[in-house]
């Protein structure tokens, strides 16, 4: 293949990627009012082979957003409502004894709801740590082990976990090590007055809006490959590393605020998330390379749950977003 042909192919891939992304965004927007950034964030996670944690107050549309996304993407969807009595077997499945017509008994693995492409783990912090671990292990390994056998999960495998930040009574907050397995942590804000009007107009009439399935499993996998192909120059990669190191209080590149309020900084997974998220962001902005601006665009979503704050931060009500904004303000791009 000649050089001209190969570049044309890449240009077509980029164009296809952007078109597919725009279609999904448009379809989801027919149901979901506002939250455009979060729709982009969820899609970015899906295309970067990550999983997303959604945080927001009750009734703000977290579950609806995920359901709509599942409707738009022609993927197998499963919803697990996490409760304190939920067991790991309820998620991954269990081995049952089955008897055939001849009376022969055999063991058979009954697949749990996790064997889907899109898994909504609703209120993930209500289940016990044991159950949470089962889900998070599957997220990390992309496979499930049961009865001495390993069952690979079908790709794309994408988990959207929701969490309610208000009702902490009777919940089991996810440990930092498990939070780190989520690619992004997205926050859903309360809609504006205009947004509320729009929500009421759409949902209180006789006919609710419907969405079409616009992308299939193959399209998503192809988009994933495209996103991974975007090259990153070393100076830009250095910027992502500088941002990560700035969150470490013991690092010489740490900002004053990070030294004061952060107990543990971001893990290397955070840097990976920065680069992969930036790649998707670069494609969305019709770029064939990753820019520092792309890294900045995903920093809050990628790192906010990977920073462990200390007691001073809790006492002075300083959150991770404030520290990350300070880091973004102070860390300059490599020259």
């Amino acid at each position: 293949m000649s050089a001209a042909t190969s570049t044309e192919l890449v240009e077509r891939q980029i164009e296809q990627f952007r078109r597919n992304f725009a279609i999904v965004r448009e379809e989801v927007s027919r149901i979901i009012v506002g939250n455009d950034d979060n729709i982009v964030g969820i899609m970015t996670c899906l295309l970067a082979r990550g999983h997303v944690l959604l945080e927001g107050i009750p009734g703000i549309g977290k579950t609806k957003l995920v359901q709509t996304l599942a409707d738009v993407l022609h993927l197998k969807f499963a919803r697990i409502q996490f409760t304190p009595d939920l067991m790991p077997g309820d998620i991954i499945g269990s081995t049952v004894v089955r008897e055939n017509e001849a009376g022969r008994k055999s063991m058979e693995f009954q697949r749990g709801p996790i064997f889907a492409n899109l898994v909504l783990a609703d209120e993930v912090n209500r289940a016990t740590p044991k159950t949470q671990s089962a889900l998070l292990e599957a997220m990390q390994e992309n496979s499930v082990s049961a009865g001495g056998q390993t069952h690979p999960l079908e790709q794309p495998f994408f988990v959207l976990a929701t969490m309610n930040p208000l009702e902490m009574e009777g919940t089991y907050p996810l440990p930092e090590a498990q939070l780190d397995r989520f690619f992004f942590k997205l926050r859903l804000d309360f809609p504006s007055a205009e947004g509320l009007h729009e929500i009421l107009d759409r949902t209180t009439r006789q006919h609710n809006p419907q969405v079409d399935r616009v992308l299939g499993q193959g399209d998503v996998l192809e988009m994933r490959e495209t996103a991974r192909s975007v090259p990153v120059a070393r100076p830009v990669q250095q910027y992502a590393i500088d941002l990560t190191l700035a969150t470490h209080p013991e690092s010489e590149r740490a900002t004053e605020m990070a030294r004061r309020f952060v107990r543990f900084g971001s893990s290397p997974r955070g840097t990976q998330a920065l680069i992969l998220g930036a790649k998707v962001n670069a494609l969305l902005n019709d770029r064939v390379h990753v820019a520092c601006e792309d890294i900045r665009a995903v920093t809050l979503n990628a790192l906010r749950h990977r920073i462990l704050l200390n007691f001073d931060a809790e006492a002075e009500r300083v959150d991770a977003d404030a520290i990350l904004n300070d880091i973004l303000h102070r860390v300059s791009e490599p020259r």
Partner: peptide, 14 residues
């Protein structure tokens, strides 16, 4: 140019 020339220079070098 959002790091376009800088990236190009680095890719050429690499």
């Amino acid at each position: 140019l959002k790091d376009e020339l800088r990236s190009a220079l680095w890719f050429a070098h690499e």
